[in-house]
Computed example of a mutant assay.
Amino acid sequence: MRDNTVDSALRTLVGYDTKEQITGHGFRATARTQFRELLGWDREVIERHLAHVSDEELGLQL
């Protein structure tokens, strides 16, 4: 799925301005942080559910 698909859904369904407020990738990164810090989910479980691969603690890719 492309970022534009998620951005379009955020604009259409939720009304976010994806140029000023949040992007699909940013929304996903926020969810990842919340799952880890608030719910205490294991990093690997989060990354699998988000279909994302990263070696960083918070899932950041450099």
Rank of each mutant, 00 (worst) to 15 (best):
M1D: 06
M1C: 07
R2C: 04
D3Y: 06
D3F: 04
D3R: 01
D3L: 07
T5L: 09
T5M: 07
T5Q: 10
T5N: 10
V6C: 09
V6I: 15
V6N: 08
D7I: 07
A9P: 04
A9W: 08
A9R: 05
L10Q: 03
L10D: 04
L10W: 02
R11Y: 11
T12N: 11
V14R: 01
V14C: 13
Y16N: 00
Y16I: 02
D17R: 04
D17E: 06
D17N: 12
T18G: 02
T18M: 03
K19M: 06
E20P: 03
E20Q: 05
Q21T: 07
Q21S: 09
Q21P: 06
Q21M: 07
I22V: 15
I22L: 09
T23M: 04
T23G: 04
G24H: 04
G24Y: 02
G24R: 03
G24W: 01
G24Q: 00
H25W: 13
H25D: 10
H25E: 10
G26T: 01
F27R: 00
R28Q: 09
R28H: 10
R28M: 09
A29N: 09
A29F: 09
T30P: 00
T30I: 00
A31Y: 02
A31G: 03
R32T: 02
T33P: 01
T33S: 08
Q34V: 12
Q34Y: 10
F35Y: 07
R36V: 05
R36A: 07
E37Q: 14
E37V: 13
E37W: 13
L38Q: 14
L38I: 12
L39K: 13
G40L: 14
W41Q: 03
D42R: 15
D42L: 15
E44V: 13
E44C: 11
E44P: 06
E44M: 13
I46E: 02
I46M: 01
I46Y: 00
E47G: 05
E47R: 04
R48T: 11
R48M: 12
H49A: 03
L50I: 01
L50T: 00
L50A: 03
A51W: 06
A51L: 12
H52I: 08
H52Q: 13
H52N: 09
S54T: 08
S54W: 02
S54G: 07
S54V: 06
D55Q: 15
E56C: 12
E56Q: 15
E56H: 15
E57P: 12
L58F: 08
L58V: 10
G59I: 00
G59M: 03
G59L: 01
G59Y: 01
L60P: 11
L60K: 15
L60A: 15
L60T: 14
L60E: 14
Q61K: 10
L62T: 07
L62Y: 06
